[in-house]
Write a protein that binds this DNA or RNA. Structure first.
Length: 627
DNA sequence: AAACGCACGC
DNA sequence: GACGTACGTGCGTTTG
C-alpha cells in the first residue's frame, strides 16, 4: 500500500492537531479500508465490465495486426519448467484466446510471433520469450513490456501479478492468478471458460493500460531508460537464462559426500562437548545449550530469545571449545543444504541450471537471481569457493571467463560527487582503500597500515551501501561514537562527497525521490518523517540508491552492448551470468584471446564517466578457476 | 503456510 | 537520544 502523500508539511503550519505521522497513520487506515472494499468488490467477480472475446480453433494470419497485445498464460512463475496454458491477443477492436494446443500447431501464429517487424505489446516479455523458446518459438518484435514499464515508473511497488500492476493504473477488470487458480495444495487450472476469460482479460489489460504507462514514462523522462535499457535487456537476459549454465553433477555429489562425513564428525564432537544430543540447526535449542547449560554470556538477544548469530559466537570463541565447532558446523551445513543439495535439485534434464533473473524487483535497479540464485555462490572462504568447480562450460574445448568491474560504485560516486580527490585517485588507478586511509588518517600512502586500510575499506563499504554509524560500528566491532567519528573524518577528507551527500538528501526532501545516472527513480516517502529511524533510513537510502542504482545502470548498458558485440564479431562465446558487477561467459578456447580483449573494452566504454571504468578479467576450465 | 533466525553474495 | 542495521535468496526450525 502507498504511504500517504501528505504534501503540506504540518511543521510549517503551527498546527495544534495530530502531527504528520498521526495523519499518515490515519490516511493509511482509510486507504486500507478502501482497499478491503475493493477486494470485496472484485471478489464478486461479476462486477467486472463484460468482455467479448473469441476463442480461435485455427489462427488466420489476417487477424494478426501490428501493435497487438500478446499474452502467454503460464501456470506459475517457474517459466523454464511450468505448463504453458494458452495465448491471448488484444487490439483496438478485438480480443482473441488461442488454446495451447492450437498455438503449437499454428504456423501462421509462429511466423507472426517470430516476425521482428510485427510489433507486440506484452507484460513480462522475458518469461514469455523463454517459455515460447521451449516450444521452438523465437518470439521477436516485442515493442512494449508493461511489467518493465511499471517497474521503471515505481520500482518500490511489489507486484508479481498482472492484476496488481494494472490496478495501480486504475484498471481493475482482470483477476489475480490466485483468484483464478487458487493457491497452495488447492491450486488447479480452472475449467476452460474461466481460463479463457482470464487470459482474454490479461491481453485486454495490457492493451488498454499501455498508453497510460507510456505517458507516465514520458512525463518522468524515463522513456529511454525503459525503452533503450530495460526492454532490450529483457531479451538478452531471456537468452542467457534459456542457454543456462552447465553443472558438473558428479563434482557436487562428491563434495556432498565429503561434507556429510565432516558434518557427522563435527556433530559428534558438539554433542560430546555439550554433554547431550540436541538439534544444532535449532537456534532455540542451541541457545539453551550455550547460555543456560554451559553458562556462556548472552551478548545479544533476538525478539524470540538468545542470538546465536556468527558475530555473537565469534566473540565467544575463546570461552569454550564448542563455539568453534558450531561455527564450522554452520558453515559446512550451509554449503551442503543450499549449495550442494539445493543446487542438485535445480539441475534440468539438459544438465544445466536455468536461473531466472528478476528484472522488476529490486528498489535500486539491480537484478536478482532465483531458482537457483546464482548471484550468491560462495567465493569468500576457500571451502565454499570450491562449489564453483562444479560450474563448467557446456561444450568440450570451451572455457569459462569472468570479468568484473573494479570499484564500480566508488567510481560512480566520484563521477556524481565530482570529488576532486576521489577523481584523482581513480585517474591514477590508486588502491582506493589505501588512498582513503591515507586521507582519513592523514598519513602518506606508504604509511598506511593494514588496520588503517581495513577500517577505510569498511567506511567505503558503508558509503556504498548506505549503512549507518551503527552498522559501521558493528562491522568494525567498535563503538557507535567511534564509527560516527570515522565517517565524519571521511567526509572532511572528501568534501566533494560531503557536498553530494548533503545535496542529494536535500533534493530527496524537496522532490520526494532520487535518481540515477540514467534517470532511474526511487521514491522516499519517509524522507520528511518525524520518526527518527524512518527518516534516517530514508536519508541513507537517498545517498545509497543513486550509487548502487547507477552502477546497475552501467552494467545493464554493458550487457546490451556485449550482446551486440558478440554478434557483430561473429563469436560463438556466450554471456551466461551477471553478478551485480561482473559478467560471466563461456567461450570456445579459440575465441579466448579475442574475448579477453573485447569484453573489457566493451564494459569499460559502456558509459562515459569523468573517471575511467576498470575491468579485471580471467579465464579457466571452471568458474572456480577464473581467478 | 508464515514468520523467524541464520548465512551466502555484491 | 532516538534503535536498527544497504540490496537480495534460500535453508531449517518454530509457530499458528
Amino acid at each position: 500500500m502507498n504511504k500517504a502523500p501528505v504534501e503540506v508539511s504540518i511543521d510549517e503550519l503551527d498546527y495544534a492537531g495530530p502531527d504528520q505521522d498521526e495523519l499518515v497513520r490515519i490516511w493509511n487506515e482509510l486507504a486500507f479500508k478502501s482497499l478491503l472494499e475493493k477486494l470485496d468488490y472484485t471478489a464478486e467477480a461479476t462486477e467486472k465490465e463484460d468482455l467479448n472475446f473469441e476463442v480461435l480453433e485455427t489462427v488466420d494470419a489476417s487477424l494478426l495486426e501490428d501493435g497487438m497485445a500478446v499474452h502467454l498464460e503460464l501456470y506459475d512463475e517457474h517459466y523454464h519448467s511450468c505448463d504453458l496454458l494458452g495465448v491471448s491477443l488484444a487490439s483496438e477492436k478485438a480480443t482473441y484466446v488461442i488454446p495451447m494446443e492450437v498455438v503449437v500447431e499454428s504456423d501462421a501464429l509462429k511466423a507472426w510471433l517470430e516476425d521482428a517487424s510485427a510489433t507486440k505489446y506484452m507484460s513480462d516479455s522475458k518469461a514469455a520469450t523463454a517459455a515460447f523458446l521451449r516450444k521452438g518459438i523465437k518470439i521477436d518484435g516485442v515493442d512494449f513490456d508493461l511489467m518493465l514499464g511499471a517497474y521503471i515508473v515505481n520500482p518500490s511497488l511489489k507486484y508479481t501479478d498482472l492484476a496488481d500492476i494494472v490496478r495501480e493504473y486504475g484498471y481493475s477488470d482482470v483477476s489475480t492468478n490466485e483468484q483464478v487458480y487458487g493457491k497452495g495444495a488447492k491450486k488447479k487450472v480452472p475449467e476452460a471458460a474461466d481460463l479463457n476469460e482470464h487470459m482474454a482479460r490479461k491481453a485486454r489489460a495490457i492493451f488498454n493500460v499501455r498508453p497510460v504507462v507510456v505517458k507516465k514514462l514520458e512525463e518522468n523522462e524515463q522513456f529511454d531508460l525503459y525503452d533503450k535499457l530495460e526492454l532490450p535487456l529483457a531479451k538478452v537476459l531471456g537468452q542467457m537464462e534459456s542457454l543456462g549454465v552447465k553443472v558438473d553433477r558428479g563434482q557436487l555429489a562428491d563434495m556432498g559426500v565429503e561434507l556429510k562425513r565432516k558434518l557427522g564428525m563435527i556433530e559428534q564432537e558438539i554433542y560430546s562437548l555439550a554433554g547431550q544430543e540436541f538439534n544444532i540447526n535449532s537456534p532455540k535449542q542451541l541457545g539453551v545449550i550455550l547460555f543456560e547449560q554451559l553458562g556462556l554470556p548472552a551478548i545479544k538477544k533476538t525478539k524470540t530469545g538468545y542470538s546465536t548469530a556468527a558475530d555473537v559466537l565469534e566473540k565467544l570463541e575463546g570461552k569454550h571449545e564448542i563455539i568453534h565447532h558450531i561455527l564450522m558446523y554452520r558453515q559446512l551445513g550451509k554449503l551442503l543444504s543450499t549449495y550442494i543439495e539445493g543446487l542438485l535439485k535445480e539441475i534440468h534434464e539438459d544438465g544445466k541450471v536455468h536461473t531466472r533473473f528478476q528484472q522488476a524487483l529490486t528498489t535500486t535497479g539491480r537484478l536478482s537471481s532465483t531458482n537457483p540464485n546464482l548471484q550468491n555462490i560462495p567465493v569468500r572462504l576457500e571451502e565454499g569457493r570450491k562449489i564453483r568447480k562444479a560450474f563448467v562450460p557446456s561444450q568440450p574445448g570451451w572455457v569459462m571467463v569472468a570479468a568484473d568491474y573494479s570499484q564500480i560504485e566508488l567510481r560512480v560516486l566520484a563521477h556524481m560527487s565530482k570529488d576532486e580527490s576521489l577523481i584523482e585517485a581513480f585517474q591514477s588507478d590508486l588502491d582506493i582503500h589505501t588512498k582513503t586511509a591515507s586521507d582519513v588518517f592523514n598519513v602518506s600512502l606508504e604509511e598506511v597500515t593494514s588496520d588503517m586500510r581495513r577500517a577505510a575499506k569498511a567506511v567505503n563499504f558503508g558509503i556504498v551501501y548506505g549503512i549507518s554509524d551503527y552498522g559501521l560500528s558493528q562491522n568494525l566491532n567498535i563503538t557507535r561514537k567511534e564509527a560516527a567519528d570515522f565517517i565524519e573524518r571521511y567526509l572532511a577528507s572528501f568534501p566533494g562527497v560531503q557536498g553530494y551527500m548533503t545535496s542529494i538528501v536535500e533534493q530527496a526532501k524537496k522532490d520526494g525521490f532520487v535518481t540515477t545516472l540514467m534517470n532511474r527513480r526511487r521514491y522516499l516517502p519517509d524522507i520528511n518523517s518525524s520518526n527518527f529511524n524512518l527518516r534516517s533510513f530514508a536519508e541513507r537510502t537517498a545517498m545509497n540508491t543513486p550509487i548502487q542504482g547507477s552502477a546497475a545502470d552501467v552494467i545493464k548498458q554493458a550487457m546490451i552492448e556485449m550482446d551486440i558485440a558478440l554478434e557483430r564479431e561473429g563469436l560463438q562465446s556466450k554471456m551466461i551470468l551477471q553478478v551485480h558487477d561482473e559478467l560471466i561467459f563461456e567461450a570456445p578456447a579459440e575465441e579466448l584471446e579475442k574475448l579477453m580483449e573485447l569484453v573489457p573494452e566493451v564494459m569499460e566504454s559502456a558509459v562515459k564517466l569523468n573517471v575511467p571504468l576498470k575491468v579485471d578479467i580471467a579465464s579457466g576450465d571452471t568458474w572456480y578457476d577464473t581467478k
